[in-house]
Design a protein around this nucleic acid. Sequence first.
DNA 1: GATGAATGAGTCTTCATTCAT
DNA 2: GATGAATGAAGACTCATTCAT
Lengths: 209, 209, 209, 209
Amino acid sequence: MSLPAGQPKFRRRKADRPDEIVAAAFEVFAEKGFAAARLDDIAARAGVSKGAIYLYFATKEDIFQAVVEQGVAPNLHNLAALAAANPQTFPDLIRAFAKVMAHVASTTPIGGIIKMVIGEARNFPELARVWHDRLIVPALGALTGAIAAAQARGEIRPGDPRHYAAGLISPLLVGVIWRETFTPVGAEPFDLPALMEQHVETQLRGMVP
Amino acid sequence: MSLPAGQPKFRRRKADRPDEIVAAAFEVFAEKGFAAARLDDIAARAGVSKGAIYLYFATKEDIFQAVVEQGVAPNLHNLAALAAANPQTFPDLIRAFAKVMAHVASTTPIGGIIKMVIGEARNFPELARVWHDRLIVPALGALTGAIAAAQARGEIRPGDPRHYAAGLISPLLVGVIWRETFTPVGAEPFDLPALMEQHVETQLRGMVP
Amino acid sequence: MSLPAGQPKFRRRKADRPDEIVAAAFEVFAEKGFAAARLDDIAARAGVSKGAIYLYFATKEDIFQAVVEQGVAPNLHNLAALAAANPQTFPDLIRAFAKVMAHVASTTPIGGIIKMVIGEARNFPELARVWHDRLIVPALGALTGAIAAAQARGEIRPGDPRHYAAGLISPLLVGVIWRETFTPVGAEPFDLPALMEQHVETQLRGMVP
Amino acid sequence: MSLPAGQPKFRRRKADRPDEIVAAAFEVFAEKGFAAARLDDIAARAGVSKGAIYLYFATKEDIFQAVVEQGVAPNLHNLAALAAANPQTFPDLIRAFAKVMAHVASTTPIGGIIKMVIGEARNFPELARVWHDRLIVPALGALTGAIAAAQARGEIRPGDPRHYAAGLISPLLVGVIWRETFTPVGAEPFDLPALMEQHVETQLRGMVP
DNA sequence: GATGAATGAGTCTTCATTCAT
DNA sequence: GATGAATGAAGACTCATTCAT
């Protein structure tokens, strides 16, 4: 409890605490779900006492909100980046979109977030609403819009552009869910970037007139 | 040692009590997840007392297992029916497959089951294993095999047949999850049969040489 | 309820039911104690339904009372028989007393009753009172009186006659408790008649002037 | 998810909490038996909340085991002390033994422990086994051995030495049980030291040739 | 600020008791 | 009379939350 003078190295500063707690909480919530998650587990994994958590969060639900919040923010950035990048042709747009998404799906813990959103949507409708309104509708809407525009230019066959969009990105979602759900019990994993590359090329070939 | 209440009790008695309990439990588990589900809720929704549940199930977990079990069985039948039907050409096979699956997805509560499997896979690994081994691997394997066979006949372009299979059915899964997750908070629903019809035709067009 | 004329053998009559229930209850109570005894066990062991018990007894406690009652009655008879028999000399009285008691202790389930009385005395003080007042005080009192009389005649050395009485019969009680408590876990049993014979002779030798 | 009460809490905190709980539990178990004992009672008597008990013991059975354990240990010490003391003659050995035992029986709560052992032996056979193996067999064995040795030296008449041993100490046990069972309902108590002194002298007189 | 012992409302589970059949 | 499915009050145990230190 008292700090030895000459041991500077692993002295954590209190400013990091909330993030560490949220990180630990994310792991536990993603693994167990909200109700089955134990504050003891979170505290232990964060390396703090249970009481310390309450210095930064008022309730378990608040921690959960913070976890989800931290899952939304970076993806918003990804979206913005995607929107900023502006490839010339529609196929390149789709390829770039899929590539970035596959990379994100492969390298970030977004799978845990998605699991939580799916699993807790009914217990925390606000959570589902935030994800839907701030991430999914914009993303899906942008994709749908791009498809509709390409259709207007005659580059894409007729058809419901929203269905085209869903057909394009669904394998990514399923791949992420697969990794969270079945890989831990021995299922053969999917190579998401490879899956998406093949899928996008197939889709594009099927979508052009 | 316990005080008699004085209210009327006992309404009926039946051999299908267990099914009523499982049905009620399915609703509650699908809505809340395992941990957040309350036996009181299940009992109330089944129209029985909490104690009555324990005449048929030893633990909450047993009820959960029974719920999942009842979600596996009918789908096994669907699979078998699919295998029995044997359309002449590969595209017709895929079309038939997608049609049946879209119908099942639209008319059965499989979405709730899938939510439960995703949400509780880590807490009940056996559950994930059963689903993976008995339903998903056979179904995905059959589809993958059919694709590989069509590739061998030159009817389908080269490419990882498992990735093709995933690309084909993913929108269905996503559609079901969407319905469970976002529709309750106001999201625009997907017309699964229509989505799948368009998706399959697009995929087929993209898959042929 | 009606006795078929030609099937006399295994037709239980309702008049036997209470006794069968009490007998079954005795086994279960003696083994588990009152609180840990299950009416299901009792019903099963008595070969009746749980509901049937309530045709004859209003509560679990009533069954317990009946069990204890049935344990008191026969011993009262034994006491009376002892009192009726009137050997000539004091040593013969003691010998006869010890012999009868050892026989009873060896051949009746009185051990279970005693265990119940000891174990439940605090939860059912009335039970302890009945045993004390109706069995123990009379028996111990008679023995003490006989000893005091013998002392008055100069046949027994001075000393507290109640202590002499306790010293005489204690090994019997301990032997019975031993059988109920330690023999089931592998303890070497006591041969109660032999133990009592040796003990009585030793005591008598020590008690005479 | 739980509503804060608003009353003052937390009074003290100590390392000897477990001992206080065991002490309280001993009283309740000795009075009610294991099954009828309520954790609420134990908690209230220990001056802690029900939840606090679970900081120190995992289950009700663990508390029970701890209670019994604490009843074994001191008696083991008594035994060792008895063995260490080595009077010259056999009668003095017996007198010392009886005196110490009577003192222990009169001044310690061993009666409650014995009641528990007798009452719960069938529900917790391990409990009976521990007492038998670690306390009773050594004690009874030592006494029996001393008697046999004295017989070999011709100081004691022939006869089963184990029966002699049982005859010597039984009144002590019965006295303790009497105190627990009948004294609370108004029975005349026994003066254990006086009883034992008279009993031992009587026995010794009867045992010598 | 941090800790972790303590709290107590809430949950699963049991079982004596009831009553429709 | 008998049955046993059903009840519901109560008990063991959990865990988010609090607060003395």
